[in-house]
């Protein structure tokens, strides 16, 4: 399973490195969301600083949807899905591999967003470990839940419109917990932030386990 996962993740990342869709479309989109939300809030520096964690996570969530759509699109052409299925790779391995590829891209994206936030909103992360742990946990959750819903919508003609409707409400707890944890780490209040990790941990674990179990049946359904 782990070997298969590494293979699939390597394949997805290699495609990504060659096509550069993530670099030239998803990353600029995420930065664009940062800027647009700042426009919506106004140039008040204090208000922006207050809203910064929320803006960060909303941008990340929207970009997650794009990354998932991209991850599904890679498998959609020329019977690729059937090829993957027939290759004898463990479905759980496919799930883990695709989730890992998406997760790594999301981590890179968060670095960019963090830099953008520091530049544009003039915020500083005071409790670094809290922000990093929250981001890592959230990334696992986002990638696993996202890949699952991506697989669910994979064979559909309406997948591009259906996926956000399906996946965004499901990701709402990550948005809440992530932005609260980041808010705490920006304000230097680690104690109130650690509580939110208690949301992020079960979310990540549950969707990881459910994905390993359900990805096989889900693929047959596509």
């Amino acid at each position: 399973m782990w070997h298969d996962a590494v293979l699939v993740a390597g394949k997805d990342l290699r495609i990504e490195a060659r096509a550069r869709v993530g670099l030239w479309q998803v990353v600029p989109f995420a930065v664009l969301v940062l800027v647009l939300l700042a426009f919506a809030i106004g140039p008040d520096q204090a208000a922006l600083r207050h809203a910064a964690p929320g803006i960060f996570w909303v941008a990340l969530l929207f970009s997650t949807v794009l990354a998932i759509q991209r991850s599904v699109a890679v498998e959609s052409g020329e019977g690729t899905r059937d090829g993957l299925r027939l290759s004898g790779i463990d479905p759980a391995g496919i799930f883990l591999g695709k989730a890992a590829a998406v997760g790594l891209q999301l981590l890179a994206l968060q670095l960019v967003l963090w830099a953008g936030m520091t530049l544009l909103f003039d915020v500083r992360v005071h409790v670094v470990w809290l922000a990093v742990v929250a981001s890592l946990l959230a990334t696992v959750g986002l990638a696993c839940a996202g890949v699952l819903y991506g697989a669910l919508s994979a064979g559909l003609r309406v997948r591009d419109t259906l996926l956000p409707l399906l996946v965004l409400p499901v990701l709402a707890p990550v948005l809440l917990a992530g932005s609260k944890a980041w808010e705490a780490s920006l304000n230097g209040a680690a104690a109130s932030g650690t509580q939110w990790l208690k949301i992020l941990v079960p979310f990540a674990v549950i969707y990881l386990v459910v994905g390993i179990v359900l990805y096989g049946p889900l693929q047959e359904a596509g």
């Binding site: 669910l152 499901v170 549950i206 969707y207 459910v210 359900l214 049946p217």
Partner: peptide
């Protein structure tokens, strides 16, 4: 099958 999986994902 698709809907059953979706319902379970929502339920968790």
């Amino acid at each position: 099958r698709r809907c059953a999986v979706a319902a379970l994902l929502i339920a968790v």
